[in-house]
């Protein structure tokens, strides 16, 4: 609670709000306790929850520091809001950036429209065709519509995370045909459920299926 028995003397001189020593040492004790917990937790493997546990404990510690050492608990509410806004906008920053980085290529149907090799984006013409052929051997005679746009080996994400998830979405189209807008329109018209034809320049994404679901 922000107790306002401090600071606002009529005469204008600032009157500090002094906490007892015990509050400081108790805070320190709590911080050391949580440090031990977080180190201890790192020796146990919780799988994907490892990161979550570490962040939650760190946030607890940070809250304690802010509330007591930084006096937020006893301070104007405004200052808590200021700190909270930093957290909010940081969360927006990280979350919205990860909307991109965590789902690249999920809707990309025509892999050939992307740079074949992210580490060499200016590779063009026949060299690019060669790279494409290496990725999708001619013998297979098909391009998976749901293949992720990110080239395996450049990013070490699993090769095709969504390929098995949505097998019905993958149709076969010859690479030449996929380049022309009319062909992609015919793919869409032929009722392949979630085939999203957003690769070619003229096809508006709004014409394709909504993202992912």
């Amino acid at each position: 609670m922000s107790s306002h028995d401090h600071g606002h003397a009529i005469g204008g001189d600032h009157v500090p709000h002094v906490l007892p020593y015990a509050a400081y040492f108790a805070t320190w004790g709590a911080l050391m306790f949580f440090t031990i917990i977080t180190v201890g937790a790192s020796y146990v493997n919780f799988g994907p929850a490892n990161l979550l546990i570490a962040v939650v404990i760190a946030t607890l510690k940070a809250t304690i520091v802010a509330a007591i050492f930084m006096h937020l608990w006893f301070d104007h509410r405004m200052h808590s809001m200021i700190l909270g806004s930093a957290g909010l906008f940081l969360a927006i920053f990280i979350a919205f950036t990860m909307f991109d980085t965590e789902s690249r290529g999920h809707l990309e149907s025509i892999t050939g429209e992307r740079p074949a090799d992210m580490s060499n984006p200016f590779l063009g013409g026949s060299a690019r065709q060669k790279a494409m052929n290496a990725l999708y051997p001619v013998g297979s005679n098909s391009v998976k519509l749901s293949a992720p746009g990110i080239v395996p080996g450049v990013f070490d994400v699993p090769a095709a995370p969504s390929a098995s998830a949505a097998p019905e979405a993958s149709a076969t189209v010859s690479p030449e045909a996929s380049a022309s807008a009319s062909a992609s329109a015919s793919v869409a018209a032929s009722g392949s459920t979630s085939a999203s034809v957003s690769g070619s320049v003229s096809a508006a994404p709004s014409a394709s299926a909504p993202p992912k679901h």
Binding site: F89, I92, F93, F96, F99, D100, T101, E102, S103, R104, G105, H106, L107, E108, R114, P115, G149, S196, S198, P205, P210, P211, K212
Partner: peptide
């Protein structure tokens, strides 16, 4: 603060992010 990705529609950004 919620719209910066509209500068990046053709950058290789994911379609999900572009839509949002």
């Amino acid at each position: 603060f919620l719209v910066w990705g509209h500068h990046m529609f053709v950058s290789g950004q994911s379609e999900l992010a572009s839509t949002i």
